[in-house]
Amino acid sequence: MPHQERRFNPYTENGGTILAIAGEDFTVIAGDTRQSEGYNIQTRYAPKVFRLTDKAVLAVNGFAADGNMFVQKVQQRLEWYAHAHNKPMPLKAIARLIQTMLYAKRFFPYYVYNILGGIEEDGSGAVYSFDPVGSYEREACRAAGAAQSLVQPFLDNQIYFKNQLPPPGGAHPRHLPLNDVLSLVIDSFTGATERHIEVGDGLEIYIVLAPNKSSVELERLPGVKRIQGTFDIAGDASPDVTAAAAAVGVTGEKMFVMRRELKKD
């Protein structure tokens, strides 16, 4: 029936890929900055990764209009929470909030794949991944979006050591150091850019460090910038200040963003 075919389709796909990896005491959340529709590149810079709190970052991928609207709604809920409780919402609570908000639109879903990354209350790095209607789980790493099928197998091999034998007499490490993770992220995106037309232009990597983790090494890397947050305290605060800050839920996570160019073809 022509009527059926001509029906307005409220969705589109805007390409791009996102990725997050949790370390023992840090999390890395990244996304490319290309936005496309079909074979058209709409813009070379449209962020897909967003700071939510001092210790939480959300990456969204899929239908860009839904993604932007969803992020704004999550941010608004987090602001209300902060006003009501005078502390930022913990990561695992944000994860559940996102599931509730996604499922609330179960029958007209946000056509968006979400990956939430950050630091849990116990100081561990964490990644939560969601499907468009809210199913979610905590993982060590996850890729989503256009190049998921290219990146995820690579991550399975490099992070989970799938199809790799442990060294004789040893075992695979449980967690990788930050530098190794950053290299993997950058390699994932250069690889995806090479082989997927919807990935490229720019790379935006958010890095969240647990309260006691040193940032000296990280800050030496090119293109790394510290992000100061609402609930942030100076890195060299006195014990008194730190204790007072902890009492209102400020625990001293540090967040950084690292920007890299990707191929534009």
């Binding site: 409220p10 589109t12 805007n14 529709e37 058209n40 709409q42 813009t43 860009a64 932007n68 609207m69």
Partner: peptide
Amino acid sequence: LGTTYQSPTIATGFGSY
């Protein structure tokens, strides 16, 4: 669709090609 983006150059419709 509510899709948005900003860019130094923009062309819509046939102009995008």
